[in-house]
Nucleic acid binder design. Structure first.
Lengths: 183, 183
DNA sequence: ATATAACCGAACAATGAGTTCGGTAACATA
DNA sequence: TATGTTACCGAACTCATTGTTCGGTTATAT
């Protein structure tokens, strides 16, 4: 990819995340983004069809970043998905989220987290569904599978929200414990 | 209240709910609302400061409607909040929601339910907090109270969402059972 | 060295938000 | 029934924002 394209794209994302930390998505204008990113108007529209697509691509990038990083750690340490420690997948997720590599936390500030978390939930659901055997219990037998998957996924996201609202003061280990107690 | 004011207000709400059933809140314009409601532009703005306030007032009205109706039933039948049947509060909520008196279900269609449910959750949280003793269990001892309240509230809302997505084909009794199994 | 592709910037039309104002009709009160 | 008040109409208006266009300029790849 052309270095110019890459720099422009990064400048837009940076400006966008900065603005998201301050105000709601709906209130952010394209004018503000291009001013902060210091690029021309036409350039913005040559990169992103609309403001909504910008958000969508940002969410995708963050999401991939989290799961790719998780995947790498998995390969290096080789102790994830250990059947004796089913909670390790989620522990790693919480750990990675706390690292806040790409200012993810700013995106997750209470105003806009709904947007990313919705996206997050849709994809996390697939992971949960594929790892459902980890959650077998007395409860799961009495509930429809789709309800059960949806409940686990939602509980993860709600746990994450609670953690963020609490300034992430607890350790990832503690949060993982809360998650498995709740679910 | 002046009959003219009441009629105008109702026409606006009606048009707004109709539109919400078809498209996302962000895509609805004031122009569409006043066309459908068949009123003047200035009239709209004399009733509602902005489109956002219209949504806020609609949510408040729906929310009050649900809880007021619940309150009446409570007075008439006198068997809610029976300590032997802690689930009855939530059963009544599910029952009332299924009745769909004011086209609530259209507002809760998957596109926009996030908005109302957020509002719903904020207020339901207070109810849960005041009735927390109903949920005492092995789990609750090990979790911070604020986490526990937030989890119960979220699980209720997520259960409701799942029910709506499933066309509300289950009975309120079954859903109440699912809710108490999950939480 | 040269062709290509990205960027600039300035202008443009189109849309929607929210306001203003003079005229009309419905309401409450006496 | 007469009168003053208040809500509504409708049409025009300003303003902010969106998304597009185009000719000129600069960075990049080969």
């Amino acid at each position: 990819m052309d270095r110019r394209q890459r720099k422009t794209r990064e400048a837009i994302f940076r400006a966008f995340i900065d603005l998201l930390a301050k105000k709601d998505f709906a209130q952010i204008t394209v004018g503000e983004i291009i001013d902060k990113a210091d690029i021309g108007r036409a350039t913005f529209y040559s990169h992103f069809e609309t403001k909504d697509y910008l958000l969508k691509e940002l969410c995708e990038e963050l999401f991939c970043h989290i799961f790719d990083a998780m995947h790498e750690e998995k390969v290096n340490h080789k102790h994830i998905f250990d059947c004796n420690a089913p909670e390790s997948v989620f522990l790693h997720l919480f750990q990675h989220l706390k690292k806040n590599d790409n200012n993810i936390l700013e995106l997750l500030s209470s105003q806009n987290n709904e947007l990313f978390l919705q996206y997050f939930k849709r994809n996390l659901g697939k992971l949960v569904a594929s790892q459902l055997y980890l959650f077998e219990s007395r409860k799961s037998e009495k509930l429809p599978e789709s309800f059960w998957i949806s409940h686990i996924t939602s509980t993860f996201v709600e746990t994450l929200k609670w953690w963020i609202d609490n300034k992430m003061s607890e350790s990832p280990e503690t949060i993982t414990e809360y998650f498995f107690l709740a679910v």
